[in-house]
Design a protein around this nucleic acid. Sequence first.
DNA 1: GTAGATGTTCCGTATTTCGGAACATAATTC
DNA 2: GAATTATGTTCCGAAATACGGAACATCTAC
Lengths: 243, 243
Amino acid sequence: MASLERALDVLAHLHEFGDAAGVTQIGRALDLPKSTVHRLLVPLVDRGWVERREDGRYRPGMMLVSLGLGVLEREPLVVAAQPVLESTAQRVEQTVFLATARAGRILVLDKREGTGFLRASPRIGAEIPSHATAIGKLYLAFAPQLVSSASAPRFTAATSSIEELQNAELSLIQTRGWATNREEWISGLVGFAAPIRFDDRLVGALAMAGPASQLPATDAARLSSEVVGAAHAIEARLKRGSK
Amino acid sequence: MASLERALDVLAHLHEFGDAAGVTQIGRALDLPKSTVHRLLVPLVDRGWVERREDGRYRPGMMLVSLGLGVLEREPLVVAAQPVLESTAQRVEQTVFLATARAGRILVLDKREGTGFLRASPRIGAEIPSHATAIGKLYLAFAPQLVSSASAPRFTAATSSIEELQNAELSLIQTRGWATNREEWISGLVGFAAPIRFDDRLVGALAMAGPASQLPATDAARLSSEVVGAAHAIEARLKRGSK
DNA sequence: GTAGATGTTCCGTATTTCGGAACATAATTC
DNA sequence: GAATTATGTTCCGAAATACGGAACATCTAC
């Protein structure tokens, strides 16, 4: 399956590179001959997965847009969360986002950003670490089997390791039903997260994140109850949607 | 390149099917043996392009979301149009969308929907026909080499063929600088579109669409000047962004 | 429990993919 | 302008890979 894997490597590279790339550049980056790269690109271009520009350079194509947005449209959790994300972000005036676990990784599914100059700005589709974020800790507390702890680097001085999280904070999260992150992932970034359940299973989490200066610890009661309320609203919409 | 093409077929099928599918169903749909389908799916699952559910069925994965949204984030036209789409949609209270030509096809890049119960709801990434829509006619009038007229079916009784459009309406569009669609694509659907240029080249179009009852011909002057104004605003933002 | 349906694994063989070299085009240097 | 360099495209004999039928594992229906 080397051929298909190489094609996927090419696509991933085009995405990460960010600019249109020629076969020589792609070949250098992936250690592949120009002719191989070119041969892989031909069907990708024919079918719209890659776009060939007039200058002979290549970039990701609109087929990715169609299929990518198709994933989100068909995800019941995303559909149910949409209006709740909207209203919650407006009410708290901070970035609110939705995430879930997929193949052991926690990925951002949707978001509504705050309007401040300094704001949290997660990328949809991006992974967030399980041990150093509010959402990650929720998963570790309620459904640790759904997340992989293979990689747990220390991001900041405040980062706890998986072992350190074992009893103290996870028990607290289980008791009160929400989690928080205080600059454990990114300096200055604070977050609150609440679990979203369907059929008694953890299917995702709703989080709010922003600069520490705007989410003071003294506001924790209000902020946590906002995310818990939002998560409940999403749960209710999920239940209604399954009729 | 049969292997890669088959994998792309599988992905396209999963997208179109809309629900999670098993190898047998995919194999039947694509006339491929189960084992071939399964073998193609393995690296797709490993890398996140396809998600395998617990019940052994497969659906498109989050890698598509990352890359698809990456395409839109990096498209200067989409970035420039975003605030303009927002404000225009609010002002006219109808669906406003952005489209461009890619490999001879006209594709929707972004949109902001009206809030009416009855509204136009284009799908981002979807193709719109060139001969039966306002945007398509803009391209035929100003840059016909960018669009393919290979397929020009009659959608409604109002649809004109490419030949019928040759002189009469295209000249008018060239003269007044905007185009309209009066139920030529979909019965009851009316649209107005204005060209977006950069460096004297047509790079896209801004359109407004909605039910005929809400976009009366008597309102054409106001509506067309809205889309023309919005297109100019996007052009200005494009020019500013290229410094 | 049996039969049928469906996802997963295996391996000899046919098919496909590979990549160096030639070619075509564009850009740079003198 | 000519020569050189850089880069995208095409070609084809040989090596590598993908193929798919069959066996296997698991689940569902009667």
